[in-house]
């Protein structure tokens, strides 16, 4: 049995497909593609499919990962799956899994912002201001529902603005994975807090998953 890792993008309207629905969508596509996959052997037998890192609803990504198990080697996996997937979910590569999902330590995200009333410069100042300071304290809900103050500064591994982009865009590397995980939405939340409202436009695209040594997750 081969654990095959699928690398795929989830763009445009597909950002509104939830994790659970994405699961079903891939399940369908795998059945349709005719790939020789392994089914679990429990009471409720289903094909094995696992997403090492979940993407929040509303975010785009060009670096999503899904694991399946093949009973025999298969050819042309991306094209076979793509013909059964929605247009804006595209499998870009498939290869035998190299790393353990637990090795994911960070994600590179590209948040982009625009506002019809604020100039780019004003927006940029607000964004940078909202993330400056020795510590960045945010309210987080604990599992019991109580609010807790957390410093997220350490989970922002790097943050810089992209100079040549049309809209105000940042390149942010944030903690991701099972150890520490920072939802890129905090950047939007910080900005909105400073502006007193959400900017007219925001979009986050995840572009890379990395290990703690800074290598691409494969």
């Amino acid at each position: 049995m081969i654990t095959e890792r699928l690398f795929f993008s989830k763009l445009r309207d597909m950002k509104y497909i939830s994790h659970l629905d994405l699961y079903r969508c891939f399940q369908r596509a795998i059945v349709r593609s005719g790939l020789d996959v392994w089914y679990t052997e429990g009471f409720n037998s289903h094909l094995y499919l696992s997403f090492p890192l979940a993407l929040s609803l509303g975010f785009e990504s060009s670096c999503e990962v899904a694991d399946i198990r093949l009973l025999s080697p298969e050819e042309d996996i991306p094209s076979r799956l793509n013909s059964c997937l929605p247009q804006d979910i595209r499998v870009t590569d498939a290869a035998e899994a190299v790393m353990d999902p637990g090795e994911i330590a960070g994600a590179e995200d590209r948040p982009e912002f625009d506002d019809l009333e604020l100039s780019r410069q004003a927006l940029e100042e607000a964004l940078c201001g909202s993330l400056s300071g020795e510590s960045i304290i945010v309210q987080k809900k604990t599992k019991k529902g109580a609010l807790k103050e957390v410093d997220i500064k350490k989970d922002i591994l790097s943050f810089e603005l992209l100079q040549d982009s049309q809209l105000l865009t940042a390149d942010a590397v944030l903690s991701a994975g099972i150890q520490n995980n920072l939802n890129p939405k905090v950047i939007l939340d910080r900005l909105s807090e400073r502006l007193g409202r959400e900017p007219d436009h925001w979009l986050v695209r995840r572009t890379r998953l990395i290990t703690k040594y800074g290598r691409d997750f494969r």
Binding site: Y16, I17, L57, P86
Partner: peptide, 10 residues
């Protein structure tokens, strides 16, 4: 449920 309004199904 934004998924209701986007279409885009295979």
């Amino acid at each position: 449920k934004p998924g209701r309004y986007i279409g885009g199904e295979p």
